[in-house]
Design a protein around this nucleic acid. Structure first.
Length: 425
DNA sequence: TCTGGGGTCCTAGGACCC
DNA sequence: TCTGGGGTCCTAGGACCC
């Protein structure tokens, strides 16, 4: 028995989620838009076949989508999050270890009985997931993470594999690795693939076989790890328990440009409230905040500004964070600029279990406890009734610049009971 | 007119200490 | 007159991921 790595993901995840809760669009062309209805970030396989590209701005393709009778949805992260949780729970039951890598993707491990292909095992899991969750998945099986990604890619690409591929059972993988373009290898991005192509390296097999010394010189341990994983040596381990988050960021584009400090302040307050609620949900504290804003990246006089401030006592308190943020906002604001986006990043996160705060005098302790209770009460009410039920007065004044979500599916998704369950037979 | 959002890891270089 | 060198911690920024 040897351990193998599995890479499992939901096919066209956002599109599949939308189709699952609304059977009327099943089997039809469908695209899902990013926040602010900006770009196309997911396509059903039907839309893909009709030639709709990924990542394109919505406004450029609006007419074409109408002509082709393709359905359009704004992204609905509450829904995708709910479905993702159910998917991951089911996968956890069926793997030995599981690392949740993103909303639609996980790495897992199981034992391989000596010399046995795991295609049948994958097929059963795939059927189980479809019956219980209603989402089609793909499964790639291999010795390492990088190879399991490639295996998953082949599972999707080659029709006869029907969503499952076990490259780990294949001794000589050259035939398959030759088919994988170098920029499709996990960890090889734009920059590295340009450098590799200039060196005549175009596919995964060539990357595996090239001089390690050259890679190490240019890309250090990061590059070497990728190459080693291609050779079948596990270098990137499975992280089962997601260690505490290192930072939390909340940013949004506005539906139209803003140019007043007042508007910017309101946006920032809004984002700080979301971020600090997240922080409390993770039982973490932060001791540094970055605020940033920028004008249109596509315009000639693009302007971006950011400022970071420390908080002397690590906190998760909304009020303290808002005060800090507003003083930072004043620093980064410039008049006569049309800002189209702003955001907040909390860093230096730590668990609130080990909160070694400064010694408070009794009055401060009282205030701190009061603040914590207040935050908690607000969080609980908002969790039950939606994010905006109770909010800080200052973030309520104007909302016209909030992001667009015009094509949101109407189904109420914050309630898990509304998600249909599909039973076998 | 309209081009997303939220993360991680690594490295180089500065500040500081002994 | 000659003015070291290694370690650690922090930060900003690059590159990549979904």
């Amino acid at each position: 028995m040897s351990k193998v790595i599995l890479q499992i993901d939901g096919n066209n995840f956002y599109a599949s989620c939308e189709q699952m809760i609304d059977p009327s669009i099943k089997g039809k062309g469908l695209v899902v838009l990013s926040n602010n209805d900006g770009c196309i970030i997911a396509r059903s396989s039907e839309a893909r076949k009709m030639g709709i590209p990924m990542g394109q701005p919505y406004f450029k393709l609006k007419n074409k989508l109408t002509q082709l009778n393709i359905n359009v949805r704004s992204s609905n992260y509450e829904l995708y999050g709910d479905i993702s949780n159910r998917l991951m729970q089911l996968l956890r039951k069926n793997c030995e270890e599981l690392e949740i890598y993103s909303i639609d993707e996980a790495f897992g491990t199981i034992k391989r009985p000596k010399g046995k292909c795991l295609y049948k095992w994958g097929k059963d899991l795939r059927a189980l997931v479809y019956q219980n969750i209603g989402i089609p998945i793909s499964i790639g099986i291999a010795e390492t993470k990088v190879l399991s990604k490639i295996s998953n890619h082949l599972a999707k690409k080659i029709q006869t594999n029907s969503g499952i591929f076990d490259i780990g059972i294949i001794q000589n993988k050259d035939h398959y690795l030759n088919q994988i373009k170098v920029d499709k290898v996990w960890g090889i991005g734009k920059r590295m693939s340009i450098w590799l192509k200039n060196k005549g390296i175009t596919n995964a097999r060539e990357l595996r076989d090239m001089s390690s010394e050259q890679i190490r010189k240019k890309y250090g341990v990061v590059g070497l790890r990728i190459q080693n994983e291609l050779k079948g040596n596990l270098c990137i381990p499975i992280k089962e328990t997601s260690s505490d988050q290192k930072e939390i960021s909340v940013s949004r584009s506005f539906s139209y440009p803003i140019d007043s400090l007042e508007d910017l302040n309101q946006a920032i307050i809004k984002y700080v409230l979301i971020a600090s609620a997240k922080l409390r949900r993770y039982n973490q504290l932060s001791s540094a905040i970055t605020i940033f804003t920028n004008t249109n990246t596509h315009s000639k006089d693009y302007y971006r500004s950011e400022a970071t401030g420390k908080i002397s006592v690590p906190t998760s308190n909304s009020k303290i964070m808002i005060e800090k943020s507003l003083s930072l906002t004043k620093e980064i604001f410039k008049p006569y600029k049309n800002f189209i986006k702003a955001g907040v990043i909390l860093h230096k996160l730590q668990s609130n279990k080990y909160n070694q705060t400064l010694i408070f005098d009794s009055q401060n302790i009282k205030e701190e406890l009061y603040r914590q209770r207040l935050d908690k009460t607000i969080d609980n009410i908002n969790l039950k009734n939606g994010l905006d039920t109770i909010n800080w007065g200052s973030s309520m004044m104007k909302k016209e610049w909030l992001p667009r979500r015009e094509k949101l599916s109407r189904i109420k998704t914050t309630n898990i009971e509304n998600i249909p369950t599909i039973y076998a037979n």
